[in-house]
């Protein structure tokens, strides 16, 4: 009997002492946190993707609460809806209208950019890039080993089975920038999202002089400057043998697409005319 009482007493004493210590500690070391932070965090998607530029959703929430204006802050996953919600919680204005979208700027599919050698090793763009220029004569273009696919947390980018090039699903893309960082060749770019996901861009990043690329890839930008003349809005610049369309200035008039001799400038999601997929197919089978 005495054992029972003794053990019971010991347990109770230990428990009581621990409780007192915990109570003191929680009072003494209490850190004040703005309750708004928890509310903002609750409104965020909690995927900690880092797309906003902060290491975690919580860090982003803290910034949202402490900042003056929400202008440069955007949760790329939640998008506009979430930012509006956050703006209401913290009582500030949300500045963003539309999020950009990732665009893969290489059109060098299997048929238009033939292989010159065969890589045998780890399936990783980073390792291939570290080793050499790639399996084709173009040392700038897509390597096709899918580091971008692995980096995407939203299942928004996939290697197309036919062209072996990555394709972005605009609806799923949250512009989190992960694929841009993952691509060792810096092919992927975040571009302004236009109405109905329409896009016009130079589908090439090769900076070699035109006469050298032509033999390796038939859809490369050869810096012929025709688009430069065709553009009425000064949206196109050419630097380092490569044309670039500024998505802020581009009015989607499609004049450059028409004049491009190698189909390096592509249009996507326009009505009435072929979409990108057909463009690629046409280039692959010029007969039809």
């Amino acid at each position: 009997m005495s054992i029972l009482i003794l053990s019971l007493a010991t347990l109770v004493t230990v428990g009581a002492i621990a409780a007192i210590i915990l109570f003191i500690a929680s009072k003494k070391f209490r850190v004040f946190e703005d309750p708004l932070i928890d509310r903002v965090e609750a409104a965020l998607p909690s995927v900690n993707c880092g797309g906003c530029g902060f290491p975690s959703c919580r860090a982003f929430a803290i910034e949202c609460v402490h900042t003056e204006s929400l202008k440069n802050l955007v949760c790329t996953v939640g998008g506009i809806a979430t930012m509006k919600e956050v703006a209401i919680i913290v009582g500030k204005d949300s500045g963003i209208l539309r999020l950009p979208v990732a665009v893969v700027r290489c059109g060098g599919g299997c048929e238009v950019r033939p292989l010159t050698n065969r890589y045998d090793g780890v399936n990783s763009c980073a390792i291939v890039h570290n080793l050499y220029g790639g399996e084709t004569g173009c040392t700038w273009g897509c390597l096709g080993y899918g580091d971008c696919v692995l980096s995407c947390k939203f299942d928004a980018i996939h290697i197309h089975p036919k062209t072996k090039l990555p394709e972005v699903d605009d609806d799923k893309c949250t512009s989190c920038n992960a694929c841009v960082k993952a691509c060792p060749k810096s092919i992927i770019e975040l571009r302004k999202r236009a109405i109905k996901s329409r896009k016009i861009y130079v589908n090439c990043v090769n900076k070699d002089p035109g006469d050298l690329i032509a033999e390796f890839c038939s859809v490369a930008c050869i810096s012929c400057k025709k688009c430069l003349e065709a553009c009425a809005f000064d949206a196109i610049t050419i630097s380092g043998n490569l044309a670039f369309i500024d998505s802020d200035k581009c009015t989607l008039c499609r004049q450059c697409v028409r004049v491009c001799p190698t189909n390096a400038i592509v249009e996507v999601n326009f009505p009435g005319r072929k979409n990108q997929q057909e463009t690629i197919e046409e280039v692959m089978n010029p007969a039809n």
């Binding site: 080793l131 050499y132 220029g133 790639g134 040392t139 070699d208 002089p209 050298l212």
Partner: peptide
């Protein structure tokens, strides 16, 4: 004078 591939696989 122009780029040529060397053993590194780059020009």
């Amino acid at each position: 004078i122009e780029g040529a591939f060397d053993a590194s696989g780059y020009k």
